[in-house]
Structures are given as C-alpha cells and as structure tokens.
Write a protein that binds this DNA or RNA. Structure first.
Lengths: 175, 175
DNA sequence: AATACTGTGTGATCCAGGTCACTTTTGAAT
DNA sequence: ATTCAAAAGTGACCTGGATCACACAGTATT
C-alpha cells in the first residue's frame, strides 16, 4: 500500500522504546499523547473502579496497538490505564504525528480506518460473548485465540479480563 | 471538510429508502452489501443464539449508522441481524461505494475513520459498564443517554440490550 | 363484543458467581 | 537456604439474576 519511501517516512515518526514489566504507559487522569504498537512483550489496558477492582479491556500482544483512544482523540484526561505485563519493546506514535501522517498520506489514513474497524468489530464480538456465554466458555475462547496468555499472564488478570473473580476462575478447573 | 461539490457527489451515492416497523435490513446468513444511516426512526442490530435468545448490540437512532461491519468489510455472510423497530427513513450506502468514495476523496476516508473510532470507543465503554455496573445502573445510564428509547422501544428489547431477562428488568421498578 | 396477540407484572424456585477468610504454592530477593 | 511477597487454591455462605409458570393488561382484528 505504501511505497518504500512513504514507509520510511511513516516509520520515522515512531519512537522505539524498551519497557519493563510493571511500567506504566498511560495513567488515569494524565494527558495522553501516544498510542503504542507492541513489537514484543505484552501490555494491558484496564480500568480501576471506586472499589479498586480492576477490569481489563485488552491484552496487547505483538503487532497489536494500545492506548486510551477516547482521551487520545479528544485530548481529554485518561480514564483508562495502560501498563506492561512483561518486559518488551514498542513503537510510540503521537496523536499529532498520526493525524499529520493521515493528512499527508491517504493510504495511512486508509490503514488506520481499517485497523480501527477491526478493533470495533472485535469489541462488539466480545460484548456479544459476554452476554451470551458463561465464564468457562469465555475462558476457553480466550485461550484458544491467544494460547500464549496462559503462560505469560497471571490468572488474576485473566479473571479481570473475563469479568469474574479470581476465585471463580480458579474453581473452573479445581472443583 | 467537504466542498459543496464534493458533498453533492458524496451524497449522490446514498439511496434514500423508507422503511416500516418490523422490516428486516440484514439477516443472518445473507450477504451484506450496505450500511445504513438513520434519518428518522429507529433500528436495532442484534444476534440470536442457539436457544433463540436475542441480544441487542445497538439501537440506531437518527444520525447513527448500522450494519454488520464484520460481514460488510470482509464480504462474508451476516452473523448479526438489523431490522426496524419503528417506521422511518434511511440512507443506504453500499460497501463498494464507501470504499470508492474513501479512495476518491481523502476527507471522506478521514470522516469514516473518525466515525469508526467513535464506535470503537463506545463499544469499549459499554463493555466496561457491563463488567462494572449492575442492571439497574446500566438501565438508568441508557435512559439518561437516550431518553427517547423509553417511549419508543418495548422493555423486552431494552432487557435484551442490557443482557438481562425481561422479568428482572420489570422487577427493578415493581419490586 | 369476542378473539387473539403482544407486552408486562409477579410468585416460586434454582444456580452461577461473588465475597470473605484462610491456607498453600510459587518465585524472586537477599 | 531463608525470607517475603505475589499468586493460586479452597471452604462456607450469600445474592443477583435466570427460569418457569401463569395472570393481566392493552390494542388490533374480525
């Protein structure tokens, strides 16, 4: 889709960054300037409610993107957090640079439209699964889709993704 | 964003269509060629599971769009349905025409990227509310955001949107 | 007015999953 | 090896919401 020269230019706007397990990338209440493309490692985007309970919106594996897209697009304070589950490496793209690149190169805008559509469809699909399926099914669905998660991510976090307590998840396979 | 001439051209690709209560626009298993912009009236997009239970993904009110975006973008058979809750009027845009317009007019592609992002953020937000809040809260959140729904849409459908049984919804305010 | 259909209310019962409190395992750090 | 912290398992108990069954609107249709 992009010529070599265009890709070179596109790529030059990304900042490569190493990150360590536990490092916060986006914190609730802060400004959000970047979205992140995962080269290696694993991120999570999550929300903490008033009772300090965590809900995970997304595990971002290699080739996935993560950010607080509401805050990023509308220049408002973050309402969700993004941090690192493992060490790894990522490419950072600022909102300004993305918009600039989208303006300058039509195909870049096309790319981001399709990526966002993919995310939208995935979110709707997850919503349906939430309404339709019980925990066990959703857990197996998740592991089928991302078998790596089983080894990388503590069960607590998987429970927070599935929207159940860690006890319930534990009891699924230790009745 | 668009010049008058561009808008004229853009608009010329939409087919205006009147629709009646109960009319199906997209049916599971069929091909999906269009997305729909609601001028007046109200649509629902929904999924029916093996037990014939309905789950509503979206109520589409005026100025909203609806389709099976997965099927539409990937030219696969519909997995979700869209039909009309009330009489009304809509503008139909074919997938081919959207892609053509996006190719021809950069700003159209920009528009659809932003629209899709908005949908993505809304879906994520609903997912969070699902995990975080109980039925009563979600019901009141919904009515606060779309007070019209209360009069237009039967409670059964609201229950199917909230992901609870109609009995439970009824008991919320008739204990 | 009688019929039929769609939307609701409501009681009784059941169960998936939550919560709390405690124990055990694992794994990293000294 | 020892210590400490994070993760995971487990028992007892509670509760929101599902399910089933039936009653009671409204509002078309004949």
């Amino acid at each position: 889709m992009l010529t070599d020269g265009q890709f070179e230019y596109f790529y030059s706007h990304f900042k490569r960054q190493a990150f360590q397990k536990g490092q916060a990338l986006i914190t609730e209440g802060d400004r959000v300037d970047y979205e992140y493309f995962v080269v290696s490692g694993c991120l999570k985007s999550f929300f903490i409610n008033d009772d300090m309970k965590m809900f995970i919106l997304q595990f971002a594996m290699p080739t996935w993107w993560a950010s607080d897209y509401n805050a990023l697009y509308h220049r408002t304070k973050a309402t969700i957090n993004v941090d690192c589950i493992t060490d790894g490496e990522l490419l950072c793209l600022s909102n300004d640079d993305r918009e600039k690149l989208c303006r300058e190169i039509h195909n870049v805008e096309h790319f981001f439209r399709w990526r966002t559509n993919k995310g939208f469809v995935a979110a709707q699909k997850r919503l349906l699964s939430f309404m339709n399926n019980n925990v066990k099914y959703r857990y197996e669905e998740l592991l089928e889709q991302y078998p790596e998660l089983y080894n990388i991510v503590p069960k607590q976090l998987i429970a927070a993704y599935l929207g159940v307590s860690r006890e319930t998840l534990s009891r699924l396979y230790h009745p």
